[in-house]
């Protein structure tokens, strides 16, 4: 099982590298899909079916959103740096990442070994979850009962993010529209209204 896990992780790393280095933005986004769907498999292997269900739908929706944005704008990546500047940027980035990796590698030895977590808090949840909440899915019991505050906060963040999307992408306001009769600024929704 550990071997399969490591192979899937290597696949994810390869997909991530292709997603970042691809010249065509559409193929880069589809390579991001490799990472997301491999993550679904990893969640299933790690015995987290809740996460797998959520991740497989979220990944699909994220691909739809990104591809919709790409189709509305452009799919060519024209940001190429040339010459000595490129080498300098790459060296700086890689040097920083190497330093980061070195220090984090020393920290990782402090973590509990893979497969033997410290379950100081979760032990209580596991033993008391069914009697205290009546829910047999312990993840649901935790997110909605023991840690309801967290979920309330997260739902509020989601609400705010969606409000942000709607505000950023809304059609031009009424006052601005009278000042600017420019046809290029009119978004699609107004066209539909006129029909």
């Amino acid at each position: 099982m550990l071997t399969i896990l490591i192979l899937l992780l290597i696949l994810m790393i390869l997909g991530a590298i292709i997603a970042l280095e691809g010249k065509d933005l559409l193929s880069a986004i589809i390579s991001l899909g490799i990472v997301g769907f491999a993550l679904v498999l990893v969640f299933l292997i790690l015995q987290a079916p809740d996460l797998a269900i959520v991740q497989i739908v979220v990944e699909t929706l994220a691909l739809i959103i990104l591809i919709a944005a790409i189709l509305k704008t452009t799919r060519e990546d024209t940001t190429e740096t040339r010459g000595a500047k490129k080498i300098f940027i790459y060296l700086c980035g890689l040097g920083f990442l190497g330093l980061f990796l070195f220090f984090i590698n020393q920290t990782l030895t402090e973590l509990p070994r893979f497969g033997y977590p410290i379950m100081r808090m979760a032990g209580n949840y596991l033993s008391l979850g069914l009697t205290k909440t009546g829910a047999s899915n312990l993840v649901a019991a935790i997110i909605l009962d023991f840690r309801g505050y967290d979920t309330l906060g997260e739902v509020t963040v989601l609400f705010t993010a969606v409000m942000g999307v709607i505000v950023v992408l809304r059609k031009i306001g009424r006052r601005t529209r009278e000042k600017l009769p420019d046809e290029t600024k009119v978004t699609g929704s107004r066209k539909i209204e006129e029909k």
Partner: peptide, 29 residues
């Protein structure tokens, strides 16, 4: 059982991640 606490934390974070991605994409557009 495996530890349910990290799973519960990640479950909400996945959905938030999607919303944040959508916000970033809308700004980029």
């Amino acid at each position: 059982f495996v530890d349910p606490l990290p799973q519960a934390l990640v479950l909400t974070a996945i959905v938030i991640g999607l919303a944040v991605t959508a916000l970033l994409v809308s700004l980029a557009v």
